[in-house]
């Protein structure tokens, strides 16, 4: 017999027993590795500009975005096209929707169209779960409220893995607006599952309650939080989600929590700088640091995002039968 074909379904179907990808919480290390391994293969294919595969030929992927997004939506769209799938983009302005009925209605409408994958972004935590309960296709959470953004954490992990070889044993500092960040939550779950040490560096007003219970070593100052870390992961200050005042001023935030060369000195000399984008330059990150080609992997994160999403689309459509919960 030949060696296992990359698309040998039966062999690995059992190792990813989820119908949807709603979050990182609940995924095991082998499941995460499986997605990262698949994604790794796609990175080279994309770089070599190989023609699109026919893996998703005839399959329909719908990007349903209730919140503005350019990079994530484009990334999913490209991923689906690279796999030969048909993509439909639906953008719904969350504010014009008359709240919830529409969400269920939309789900039922889409259901009638026989989709294969529904990629959802929504401003409310739990919205993809609500949809997943109603539709007959795989649902990928492309970011929900302050809950999770699983493909972002996976692409972050892939970026780290490609630079550091492994996640195990690394110390990662996640800095800034952890309270409002779905990226932070997904990364905390993923990094803990993979054996990394995770620090959260933020003023107390931007930390959720009981944050340490999620496996976060909490620091309130960059001076201690960045000490000897392997990875500095900056978060976007989400002022649009803030109700009331969390900080005296952006200027003060940048002074104490913005990443600049001075603070970066505390990290290991080979520490990587990451940011999920879009960046607020001069708010959480100094422009020069962000653009430092020796330290910053921010654009690579974007590049690997396509490969990670290809892996997710592949695994959910090919490897996961309807019987798998």
């Amino acid at each position: 017999m030949s060696s296992p074909h990359p698309h040998d379904l039966d062999a690995r179907a059992a190792s990813f027993a989820h119908r949807h990808l709603l979050g990182i919480e609940g995924l095991t290390a082998p499941e995460i590795n499986l997605l990262l391994d698949r994604a790794d293969g796609y990175v080279e294919r994309n770089r070599n500009r190989e023609p699109a595969s026919e893996l998703l030929k005839g399959r329909v992927v719908v990007n349903l975005f209730f919140e503005n997004s350019t990079r994530t939506r484009t990334s999913f769209e490209l991923a689906a096209r690279r796999l030969g799938g048909d993509v439909i983009n639906m953008s719904v302005d969350g504010s014009s929707v008359k709240k919830g009925e529409t969400l269920i209605d939309t789900a039922m409408t889409l259901n009638a169209m026989h989709l294969d994958v529904l990629v959802v972004r929504h401003q409310e935590s739990g919205a993809p779960k609500l949809l997943a309960d109603k539709v007959n296709c795989a649902v990928i959470n492309a970011g929900d409220g302050s809950h999770e953004h699983p493909t972002q954490a996976l692409l972050d992990a892939l970026t780290i893995r490609r630079h550091k070889g492994s996640l195990k044993g690394l110390t990662v500092a996640i800095c800034g607006d952890i309270l409002h960040s779905r990226v932070a939550r997904s990364n905390i779950h993923l990094l803990n599952a993979m054996g990394a040490t995770v620090r959260g560096v933020a003023p107390p007003t931007l930390l959720p309650s009981a944050a340490e219970r999620l496996g976060l070593e909490v620091h309130h100052r960059m001076e201690t939080g960045l000490k000897d870390v392997d990875i500095v992961m900056m978060l976007r200050l989400q002022q649009e989600r803030m109700q009331g005042q969390y900080l005296p001023s952006v200027r003060e935030f940048f002074r104490f929590y913005g990443l600049d060369y001075e603070k970066l000195k505390l990290a290991r000399p080979d520490a990587l700088i990451m940011h999920p984008g879009p960046m607020n330059r001069g708010v959480e990150i100094d422009s020069q640091v962000a653009d430092d080609i020796h330290r910053s992997v921010i654009l690579e994160q974007v590049e690997l995002g396509v490969a990670v999403r290809m892996a997710c689309l592949e695994v959910l459509t090919m490897w996961s039968g309807p019987g798998n919960g």
Binding site: S125, G145, S146, H147, R182, R185, P208, S209, Q243
Partner: peptide, 18 residues
């Protein structure tokens, strides 16, 4: 009290205002 559930670990995991 501008939240949706009790403040604590579960609200934090669910990403809900608490």
């Amino acid at each position: 009290a501008g939240g949706a559930m009790n403040a604590g670990e579960i609200a934090t995991r669910l990403g809900l205002p608490s």
